[in-house]
Simulated scan of single mutants.
Amino acid sequence: MPRLAAFCGAVVIGAAIYCLIYNMLAGYQETLWNALRWPIVNLVPFIIALEHARRCTRWTQRSIFIGIAITASLLLDFAIGDGESVAFELTRRLPTLGLSYALLLIGDARFAAAPAPARLSDAMTLPVPAEMVDQVRAAQNYVELHIGDRVITHRATMAQMERALPQDSFVRIHRSRIIRRDRIAKIGCGTVILNCGTELGVGARYRAHLN
């Protein structure tokens, strides 16, 4: 969050300086408030939304964040008293809307095209000791490390996590899930039941791993 706030601040200051210089060279007089207002209203909500949306696994979830950004941008615009009709302001934000989805698609494509790195040590890959992890779930460009009631989001692939976690303590049961062996209470036909009572499906290609 501090890094995101710092980035937003840098974008606002950079865009404001650009606006001031551009208008000065064009012969127009621009106030510092107007120069700051434009990036705060039109850029910051989308930057924050993209940071959260890129961590989501579903496009419906991503669209919710983008929709919140549009709503926040409109409310800020009208609160300041500079907005025109809602239809006009929505139309004016269509390029930003398209750019937001394009950036998410580019991020997905770059992650999918990236070659799997060589085997990494636990210290380089895991943000917490392996013995603290109950299970790992895939989350688009990230993985979710489940530690009791806590969930830590970490940028890695499931293949990386499978290599990094001790194979005698963890087993991959699905392309999107790795669990601790000692959390398994019962192995069924295509499922496993954890000590907490949760039943999880086992992918066909991973069933032999449970033996």
Rank of each mutant, 00 (worst) to 15 (best):
V11P: 07
A79C: 15
V133M: 01
L20R: 13
L97S: 06
R181D: 02
F170D: 00
I193M: 02
A138D: 04
Q135P: 05
P2F: 11
V202K: 01
L36N: 05
M1S: 13
F65H: 14
F111L: 04
F170Y: 12
G203M: 04
T125G: 06
R175Q: 12
D122L: 12
P127H: 02
E84M: 10
C56M: 15
T57M: 07
R137N: 10
R93E: 06
R137M: 04
R180H: 12
A87I: 13
D168H: 14
D82C: 05
V41C: 03
Q140R: 15
A156E: 05
N42E: 11
Q160L: 07
F78Y: 12
I70A: 09
G148W: 09
E51M: 06
V128C: 07
G27K: 14
Y101I: 11
I70C: 08
L36G: 02
V133R: 00
A102V: 04
V44M: 04
D108S: 03
D149V: 09
L103Y: 09
A69H: 00
S100P: 04
V41F: 02
F88K: 14
P39K: 09
I152G: 08
A138M: 15
M1C: 10
L75G: 12
I13C: 11
I48D: 01
G98T: 10
A112T: 13
R92V: 01
A72V: 15
R62G: 08
G201F: 05
A26K: 15
R119S: 13
W38S: 09
I64Q: 07
T153F: 08
A138E: 07
I21K: 10
I187N: 01
L120H: 10
N23E: 14
T157C: 04
R205F: 00
A139I: 07
R119G: 06
E162S: 13
A53I: 01
Q135M: 14
F46P: 00
D108G: 00
R54C: 06
A185P: 04
L94P: 00
L210W: 04
T198F: 03
R207L: 00
A6E: 09
F78M: 08
